[in-house]
Amino acid sequence: MAEGTGEHGGGGMPDPMHQFEIKRLIELEVFGLDASFTNSSMFMIIAAACVMFLTIFGMRGRALVPTRMQSVAEISYEFVANMVRDNVGSGGQRYFPFIFSLFMFILFCNMLGMLPYSFTVTSHIIITFAMAAVVFIGVTVIGFIKHGIGFLKFFVPSGVPAPLLVILVPIEVISYFTRPVSLSVRLFANMMAGHTMLKVFAAFVVGMGVIGGWAPLIFMVAFTGLEILIAFLQAYVFAILTCIYLNDALHMHH
């Protein structure tokens, strides 16, 4: 969110898009590709470190009556475990580690973005698209491994007369390919729009001064609460859709 970083754009107003700027912290070039360590990479590492700290350090005690940190780790485990069990069904537990990592990583990226002066990793579409592409390709490969060439039947709706299939099969194929796009656009658009809006309203607070600034400030407080809800919700939606896609690939019921 990084509201109030204070960098000014052209006309005295802070630039609301400045917070999304990628800064190279360590310049690095690998085989002619720019592989610099950026602020984005740094926050990804921080998010992963937070997840590891929570799950490894939090569960260190293994107490029957958990400490606060252990409870948080247990709640998140059970939350994802229930989600996988309810949405993937049989054979889903094998994919639990992946979905748990995905959910926790996105959740921590979103939540870390809510801290002032931080950087929101998931507000860049290339990051969300990369994650969605991993899910999409992985699920497709799992589908083909499970069902062989029969997985292509997924694109042929049952009980439809042959002439209609000419139209319906392309529609089904396109709707299959919309999955990574909708998955990534949803997360990225939510995070970016929310943070831009917060920044714009923060500029109003400064611009309207001590007398008029209270109204946008109150709005901002409420909106920050909503943003935290959205940060959680989008991680949840990403994980649950991964579960649903996995279920489609494993069981193929339409």
Partner: peptide, 25 residues
């Protein structure tokens, strides 16, 4: 209530993604 909001986002983005992917292909 939380998931209702989630599904609202889901539906909206589904619609847009369809147009985007179709147009891109």
């Amino acid at each position: 209530r939380g998931t209702a909001m989630g599904t609202a986002f889901r539906i909206a983005s589904e619609l847009i993604a369809g147009l985007l992917v179709g147009g891109f292909i």
